[in-house]
Amino acid sequence: MSSTLGVLSDAERLFIVHGVQDDLRSDGRACEDYRHVQVETDVVSNTSGSARLRLGNTDILVGVKAEMGEPDPGRPKEGKLEFFVDCSANASPEFEGRGGEELAIEVSNALQRIFNSRSTLDLTALCIIPEGQCWVLYVDVLVLECGGNLFDAVSLAVKAALFNTRIPTVVVTADDEGQQEIELSDDPYDVKRLDVDNVPLIVTLSKIGHRHVVDASWEEELCSLARLTVGVTQKGTIAGLNKEGSGSLDPESIYEMIESGKKVGMVLNSRLKEALEKEENSKREKIGFLG
């Protein structure tokens, strides 16, 4: 995955590895520190919910569109969530045409994995008519700039966008002929919100040398031998685990990495929630990309 983003000289590599050994990274952070995160919701107007997130140099824009559709035959009383990731050519000339598809599929699969479990999001709230109609949420992720740690940024942005999603309330009335009619309320404030408290966030831990770091920049990603992506919820439960990279990991180090991932993940979750609530209450003028 990281091969798409440039090359690193041996001297630089050594510099980074040695720095990490001493708990000092190139930009001055400690091994478990995140870069500065900026999040803003409701940036795109013709979506049901949207969010823009900037994590260091990584820029992600997520739009959620709610449309009515038929539920899965195996889960008739639940709504659906569909993910689509588009790596824009803005991020790198190599994503032009179909170049970004591989990376997009990886990210999309990671998202599917963490949202797979029942306890993540209450999909029964999205049901309109059991076995008839339900809300299908199309979550579209647009990767605008890639400066390392794509998975974390994407999951943060998706959580923020889902927090921001407003689904119009529906009233189901029975027609004269027994047909059910669905009425959407026109009031923009009569909306349903999703409960995203249990949505996990992905924390990527990269193994560099003998230690591991959280939120690797793209130079650090190129030095890492193996990566562990952990989905962590607010309460500290693990929602998904995946090991990537060609290097091998010792079971001990895996355990250590999971522990530190849990710690970091819980903090991340609570901070994000604070920030989102503050933003919603603040009524500030939307800046979007202009700021």
């Binding site: 795109v44 013709n46 959620v64 579209d140």
Partner: peptide, 21 residues
């Protein structure tokens, strides 16, 4: 000069399934 135009899937009122191509 090489250009690429792409529209985000959520950019239009109705969701666009193919951003480019």
């Amino acid at each position: 000069v090489n250009c690429q135009f792409s529209m985000a899937t959520f950019s239009t009122g109705e969701r666009k399934s193919r951003p480019k191509g």
